[in-house]
Write a protein that binds this DNA or RNA. Structure first.
Length: 175
DNA sequence: TAGGCCATCTGGTCCT
DNA sequence: AGGACCAGATGGCCTA
């Protein structure tokens, strides 16, 4: 199924424009239907009788509702930004299933292990190739390596690569 | 049909 | 005070 069609079927968010549209169409209806307008006139006279407290409550409700809609809109934008970031992450992680989108949890898990794999590779290279006095010398590489070892004392370097490739394949299997 | 994934709404809390 | 962030609830879509 096309993503666009799928997205169109999702719940349509309610926003301020919808509310304004509803209110506008309601006013339009009053203009188009005079008899209904007369009826409303009677109701309006009744409304004058209600206490100022009730009117304030109504105003507060409307204000609250407006603020809620504004917050909802901001929350949607925030989630869209988050999803864009997920998409950007998906695009830089090498994985097997190009035809099916990685889920969020898969993306995070693969990313974590991909980073571990790259880190381990860099550390291997820097400790094996650098010569004393050069940038990235064993002195620097050694500190990096110690720091890395402290954080990953329970796993070896090959372990990361195995874990990463196993996960790629298990995700493919799971699909 | 159940379970997974996702988008949205909502109220609470934190931060500026 | 108002916006950002978070987590729980809800409901829609998809797949096995």
């Amino acid at each position: 199924m096309k993503a666009k069609a799928k997205a169109a079927r999702r719940r349509r968010p309610v926003n301020l424009e919808d509310i304004h549209e509803q209110r506008a169409s309601s006013e339009e209806h009053l203009v188009k239907c005079p008899s209904y307008k007369d009826k409303r006139k009677g109701e309006d006279e009744e409304l004058v009788k209600i206490s100022s407290k009730k009117r304030r409550e109504t105003a507060n409700r409307e204000e609250h509702s407006t603020r809620r809609l504004e917050s909802n809109e901001r929350e949607r934008q925030r989630m869209h930004k988050l999803n864009n970031a997920f998409q950007a992450l998906r695009e830089v992680i090498p994985h097997v299933r190009a035809e099916k989108k990685l889920s969020k949890i898969e993306t995070l898990t693969l990313a974590k292990n991909y980073i571990n794999t790259l880190t381990a590779t860099i550390l291997n290279m820097s400790s094996g190739c650098a010569t004393p006095g050069q940038e990235g010398s064993p002195a620097n590489g050694g500190k990096l390596f110690q720091h890395y070892q402290q954080q990953h004392s329970d796993e070896d370097n090959d372990g990361h690569l195995k874990k990463y490739s196993t996960q790629i394949h298990s995700f493919r299997k799971g699909s």
